[in-house]
Amino acid sequence: MTTLAGLFAVTLFTCLAVLPHCTRKKVIEEPLRQARARNSPVAAFVDDLQQHRWIVIIGLAILVALDKHFGLSGGFLQSRWVLAILITSIFLGRLLLRRNPAPPPPTAGSPNLNS
């Protein structure tokens, strides 16, 4: 049993030492960098997911806890499909709102090119 535990510990620490070397180059980074240069909506979506994931996770966890306590949706909100659809719609809505901003109002000293 002691040999097995020692072998497990050596294997674990070897894997932990080798893992950073294997994952140094991320395959997704280059296409993502090119997509950012093209101002791609998919790159904006991925960046939004990476930056705000914890806020959404904590917010949905609180929402599900409240739903579980008060029984507002009868368990419908606790479904994996509903949570996946809700998370996707939050980020897609943010993406669409950010992609279609209202044009800024003209300032007092700028020439009006539309008339």
Rank of each mutant, 00 (worst) to 15 (best):
T2F: 06
T2E: 08
T2Q: 06
T3F: 04
L4V: 12
L4H: 05
A5N: 06
A5V: 14
G6H: 08
G6T: 13
L7R: 08
L7P: 03
L7K: 05
L7I: 10
A9S: 05
A9C: 05
A9H: 03
V10D: 00
L12D: 01
F13S: 09
F13Q: 04
F13I: 13
C15P: 01
C15S: 04
L16H: 03
V18M: 09
L19H: 10
P20Y: 02
H21K: 14
T23L: 11
T23R: 09
R24C: 05
K25Q: 12
I28L: 00
E30T: 11
R33F: 01
R33W: 01
Q34T: 12
Q34R: 15
Q34Y: 01
A35V: 04
R36L: 03
R38F: 02
N39S: 08
P41H: 00
V42R: 00
A43W: 04
A44G: 07
A44T: 07
A44R: 05
F45Q: 05
V46M: 01
D47V: 04
L49P: 06
L49C: 07
L49S: 06
L49I: 14
L49Y: 00
Q50R: 13
Q51M: 13
H52G: 06
H52T: 08
R53G: 02
I57P: 08
I58M: 05
I58R: 10
G59D: 01
A61H: 03
I62G: 10
A65F: 11
A65R: 10
D67V: 13
K68M: 15
K68I: 15
G71K: 05
G71F: 03
G71W: 00
G74F: 04
G75S: 02
F76W: 15
L77E: 01
L77Q: 07
R80M: 12
R80H: 09
W81S: 14
W81D: 10
W81E: 13
V82E: 03
L83W: 02
A84T: 13
A84V: 13
I85K: 08
I85T: 14
I85S: 11
I87K: 10
I87H: 02
S89G: 08
S89L: 14
I90P: 06
I90K: 04
I90F: 15
F91S: 06
L92D: 03
G93S: 15
R94C: 13
R94F: 11
R94E: 02
L95K: 09
L97M: 15
R98M: 11
A102F: 04
P103R: 09
P103E: 01
P104E: 01
P106M: 03
T107H: 08
A108S: 07
G109L: 14
G109Q: 09
G109A: 14
S110A: 14
P111H: 07
L113G: 00
S115W: 07
S115C: 12
